[in-house]
Design a protein around this nucleic acid. Structure first.
Lengths: 222, 222
DNA sequence: CTGAATCCGACACGATACTG
DNA sequence: CAGTATCGTGTCGGATTCAG
C-alpha cells in the first residue's frame, strides 16, 4: 500500500492527480477525445511510449472507469473509447493546452513527430477559448493525401476535432501538413497569402465562413 | 538528454505536462495560489513530501519562471510566490478540482491530514464553477482557534481563498475544522441545522449573505 | 528552526525483443 | 493487431545529517 502515485491528502486536486497524474495517462485521454482508437493508433500518436506502458495505462484507465474496451465480434481488433467520466476530463486537457499555448509552446524540434490530428485539436481548443462563434453549425473535412481525414466541427456551441466522420462535410480542405502548420502558425496578417497552400472545396458560403473564422483577430494563435 | 519527463511530441498539452506533470509540482502551485508560503509551510501542507523533493521542485519551478523566491532583508526566511506564469495555472487546478469533486472525491481516509485552507480552496472553486454571484464584493474570515486564519473573498467576479488578509473582513466565522466540514459536505437541506457549529460575527446584512450563499442550490457540494 | 544534501531501497519507466 | 517478457535506468520515498 501507499503506492508512490498516491498523496494521502484530503484534497480533490491531489485525488484527481492520483488518478490521472502519471506519465502518459492524460495523453491517452487527449487522443481518445478525438474519437475511439485502437492500441496501435495510440501507440503511434504517443511517440516514445512502449507497448508495455500503454497496456498498463489502458488497464488502469479501464479499472477507473475512464475508458472502455470495445471488441468487434470475430475480429481481434480492440477499440478504446472514453466513458462520460473520461469525456469530463476535456476541460483539464483544454486548460493545459491554453496554458501551454501561452507559456510552453515552441517550434517543432528536430525528430519530433507532427500529427495533423493534434494541430487541429489545438486549433479547436483555441477557437473555443477565443469564443469564435459562427452563425451556424459546420463540419470541415481536412484531407492530407494518404492519411486518415480529420474533421473539425462546430456544433453551435463548441468546436471539436474528430477522426470519425460526424456527418456530411460543408467544406473539404485538401492540403499538406506543412502548409497547414504554416497557415495556422502565421500571424493573421499573413494568413490570406498562405491560403494558396490549401485547396477549399465547398459552397461559396462555406468557403467564406472558413476564411472569416481563420483570419479574424479572435482566432489568432500567436 | 531525453530525460524521462519529456515526451518529444509536437503538442502543447504534452509540452505543458513536461513542465508541470511531475509528482508534487501542481500541488506546490495549488498551495501558492492561496498566497506566498515558506518552505516549511509547503512541507506541512504536502504531507509526505521529503525536503529533498520539495527543494528540487521549487528549483525547477523557479527555473521555469513559475515561482519566485523572496528573501526578506536581514531574515533567513525565504518566501515563495507565483509569477504570472504560475498564476495562469489556476484554471488547470480548477478543472482538476471540478473533475475530482464529481469523479474522485472520497471521505477523509484514516491518517489523512486535513487543512481548512484546502477545504475552503475547494469551496471557492466550486462557487466559481456554479457561478454564485453575490451582489457585492466581500471578505469572510475563517478562524480556527490556534491556526492561522483563512480568508474567502469575492471580488465582484471570482471567489478565491487567501491566507494573507486581503482587507477588512465583512464577516468572521469562528468554528472548528470538524464543524466546517460537516457543514460544507452536508446536503443543502441539512446545512441550516449545522450552522450551530459556526459562530458568525458581522452585520446582519453580512450574515444574511453568507447564509444565502451557502444554502442556495447553486452552491451545493454534493 | 529553515533550507537543504546524502545514502539507500522501492518502484515507475524506457529499450529491445518476442508472441498469439 | 494487440499485446508480454526481460533487463537496465531514472524517479521518488525514508531516514539521517548538516550548515546558516
Amino acid at each position: 500500500m501507499a503506492r508512490t502515485k498516491d498523496y494521502g491528502h484530503f484534497c480533490v486536486i491531489a485525488r484527481s492527480l492520483e488518478v490521472i497524474g502519471e506519465k502518459w495517462t492524460l495523453l491517452v485521454v487527449r487522443d481518445l477525445l478525438r474519437g475511439p482508437q485502437r492500441f496501435t493508433d495510440l501507440l503511434r500518436y504517443m511517440g516514445g511510449i512502449t507497448p508495455k506502458w500503454l497496456s498498463a495505462r489502458l488497464r488502469e484507465l479501464e479499472a477507473e472507469g475512464i475508458i472502455e474496451r470495445d471488441s468487434v465480434e470475430g475480429r481481434r481488433e480492440v477499440w478504446y473509447r472514453l466513458t462520460k467520466k473520461g469525456r469530463d476530463l476535456a476541460p483539464v486537457l483544454e486548460s493545459l493546452a491554453v496554458w501551454g499555448i501561452e507559456h510552453a509552446m515552441r517550434p517543432p524540434q528536430p525528430g519530433e513527430p507532427i500529427f495533423p490530428e493534434m494541430v487541429l485539436q489545438a486549433t479547436t481548443i483555441f477557437l473555443n477559448r477565443r469564443g469564435v462563434h459562427p452563425a451556424k453549425p459546420l463540419v470541415w473535412q481536412f484531407e492530407f493525401g494518404e492519411r486518415r481525414a480529420v474533421f473539425v466541427t462546430f456544433d453551435g456551441e463548441r468546436w471539436s476535432s474528430r477522426q470519425d466522420e460526424p456527418g456530411a462535410a460543408d467544406l473539404t480542405i485538401t492540403t499538406t501538413l506543412g502548409a497547414l502548420i504554416a497557415f495556422l502558425y502565421a500571424p493573421l496578417s499573413e494568413r490570406r497569402s498562405l491560403l494558396s497552400g490549401l485547396s477549399l472545396e465547398g459552397s461559396e458560403d462555406a468557403r467564406q465562413i472558413f476564411l472569416e473564422t481563420m483570419t479574424r483577430p479572435a482566432a489568432a494563435t500567436a
